[in-house]
Computed example of a mutant assay.
Amino acid sequence: MEQLQRPGLGELLRYVAELVEQGAEEQYRRMGLEYRPRFTPVMRALAAGAETVTDVTKQTRLTQGAVSQTVKLMGGAGLVERYGVSDGRKSGLRLTPEGEDLVHALEPQWEATFTAISELEKEIGYPLLRVLQETANALDRQGFGPRLAAAGDAQMEAIHG
Results as ranks from 00 to 15, higher is better:
52 T>L: 05
52 T>A: 03
53 V>L: 05
55 D>E: 04
55 D>V: 05
55 D>A: 01
56 V>D: 00
56 V>T: 02
57 T>I: 08
59 Q>V: 07
60 T>D: 02
60 T>H: 04
60 T>C: 08
62 L>Y: 09
63 T>L: 00
63 T>Q: 01
64 Q>D: 15
64 Q>F: 14
65 G>W: 14
65 G>K: 14
66 A>S: 13
66 A>I: 11
67 V>C: 07
67 V>A: 04
67 V>H: 06
68 S>R: 10
68 S>I: 08
69 Q>N: 14
69 Q>V: 15
70 T>W: 10
70 T>I: 15
70 T>P: 13
70 T>F: 11
72 K>H: 15
72 K>I: 14
73 L>Y: 09
74 M>P: 09
75 G>D: 09
75 G>C: 11
76 G>C: 09
76 G>Y: 08
78 G>V: 12
79 L>T: 03
80 V>A: 05
80 V>H: 00
80 V>G: 06
81 E>S: 13
82 R>N: 07
82 R>S: 13
83 Y>D: 00
84 G>K: 13
84 G>H: 11
84 G>A: 15
86 S>G: 13
86 S>F: 15
86 S>T: 15
87 D>M: 03
87 D>N: 13
88 G>K: 07
88 G>S: 08
88 G>V: 06
89 R>E: 13
89 R>K: 14
90 K>T: 09
90 K>I: 02
91 S>P: 01
92 G>T: 07
93 L>S: 01
93 L>T: 04
93 L>K: 01
94 R>Y: 10
96 T>Q: 02
96 T>A: 02
97 P>K: 03
98 E>M: 09
98 E>N: 09
98 E>A: 15
98 E>D: 12
99 G>H: 00
99 G>F: 04
100 E>D: 03
100 E>H: 03
100 E>M: 06
101 D>Y: 06
102 L>G: 04
102 L>F: 07
102 L>I: 10
104 H>M: 10
105 A>T: 15
107 E>L: 15
109 Q>V: 14
114 F>C: 06
115 T>A: 10
117 I>V: 14
120 L>C: 02
121 E>H: 02
121 E>K: 04
123 E>W: 08
123 E>Q: 03
123 E>Y: 09
124 I>P: 04
126 Y>W: 12
127 P>S: 15
128 L>D: 07
128 L>G: 03
128 L>A: 15
128 L>Q: 02
129 L>F: 09
130 R>Q: 13
130 R>D: 12
130 R>C: 02
131 V>M: 08
132 L>H: 05
132 L>R: 07
132 L>A: 15
134 E>F: 01
134 E>A: 01
135 T>C: 06
135 T>E: 08
135 T>W: 05
135 T>R: 05
136 A>C: 03
136 A>D: 07
136 A>G: 06
136 A>E: 11
136 A>R: 09
137 N>E: 12
137 N>M: 04
137 N>G: 02
137 N>S: 10
138 A>Y: 00
139 L>G: 00
140 D>M: 10
140 D>P: 01
140 D>T: 09
142 Q>V: 15
142 Q>R: 12
142 Q>M: 13
142 Q>L: 14
